[in-house]
Computed example of a mutant assay.
Amino acid sequence: MTQTILYARVSTAEQTSTHQKDQAEKAGFQIDRVVTDQGVSGVSVAFADRPEAKRLFDMLRPGDVLVVRWVDRLGRNYDDVTHTIRTLMAMGVIVRTVINNFTFDGSTKDPVQKAVRDSLIAFMAATSQAQAEATKEAQKAGITHAKATDGKYLGRKPSYDRKVFDAVCDALQGTTTVSEIARTHGLSRQAVLRIKDQREQAEAALAKWE
């Protein structure tokens, strides 16, 4: 009997596997089991090196479905994400995403369908890494700006701390609305919009107060 397993990677305290499961079920997935890696970076820790992700390779069987909110839950490194998806497909596992409802099935034989599938995997993996690198650069810019203004007027203190900022940035990559994100993290819509539209400035304001 085949099973549908949700893999959730939770990198901050504000994220939860329950939220990711709720998203999947609202999208129509019937989840049999949830496997969660808590507090694990998608940038520095490869999928195969995560404690719970390792278990998946023993749990999954041909025909099983592995559901992830988006490919960034598998990782934020191009080579790691593409390798992971190809490994799972070679095992006969079908990989599906909640956002955009993409399906990656290794049983596809048609060359055109394979080309489209492989191109989509490459694009999504590249996007995941690019988003992570953009966030990192914004953090660097904020720290540099904070150092340059050390001892000067700090401006208004942000209504969020580092954990909330990272969680909001993560949520903005999905389909959750600005209003929902604001309610979840106890922020105003304006604060979330500032992070969304002026991330580098928001990062700089936060860094000055840290």
Score class of each variant (00 low, 15 high):
A132S: 12
A138W: 03
A8R: 00
G106I: 03
S44Q: 05
A130K: 15
A171M: 06
T97G: 03
T149E: 14
P158E: 05
E203W: 09
R76T: 08
Q198T: 05
L193G: 01
Q15N: 09
Y78P: 00
F102W: 11
D161S: 13
F29C: 09
V40P: 05
D64Y: 13
D197M: 06
L6Q: 01
A191S: 15
V81N: 07
V67S: 05
Q30A: 06
T84W: 09
G142T: 04
A171D: 08
V40T: 09
Q131H: 15
V81P: 07
P111F: 04
Q190S: 09
M124P: 02
G186W: 02
Q113M: 12
T82S: 14
Q201F: 02
G155F: 12
D58Y: 14
D32V: 07
A204L: 08
Q139D: 06
T18W: 03
D105V: 01
M89A: 03
E14C: 14
H83V: 00
R156D: 10
Y78E: 10
S44K: 09
R183V: 01
S44L: 04
K114D: 08
A204C: 07
L56N: 01
R33I: 03
M91V: 06
T36K: 04
D22S: 11
I99A: 15
S11A: 14
A148V: 03
T177L: 01
H185A: 06
L206I: 07
T144Q: 11
A191T: 14
H185E: 01
D197L: 11
V45G: 12
V112T: 14
V95M: 06
A205K: 05
V93Q: 03
T177W: 02
V40L: 06
I143C: 02
